[in-house]
Amino acid sequence: MTIRRAHLALGLFILVALMSLTWPLSVCFAQPLPLILGLPRGLFAICCWAAATFVVLLVYDRVLAKSHAQEDV
């Protein structure tokens, strides 16, 4: 398996993992109270999820760019 294919597989895994969070996120943060930072728990959780997705993608992108550069060399 080439590095590119390995990263594609890893990326798809991350995508599936992020998608599968939809359900538990909805269930775990269903309780309306207490409110966190003034936001309902569900909304707060989705905001954290958005921030975490951004960070995961950023790290993944950095790693991918580095190994592509190595592979090209």
Binding site: L18, L25, I46, C47, W49, A50, T53, L57
Partner: peptide
């Protein structure tokens, strides 16, 4: 928000 977070991946 939830589908927007994932939709572009």
């Amino acid at each position: 928000l939830a589908f927007g977070v994932l939709g572009f991946i």
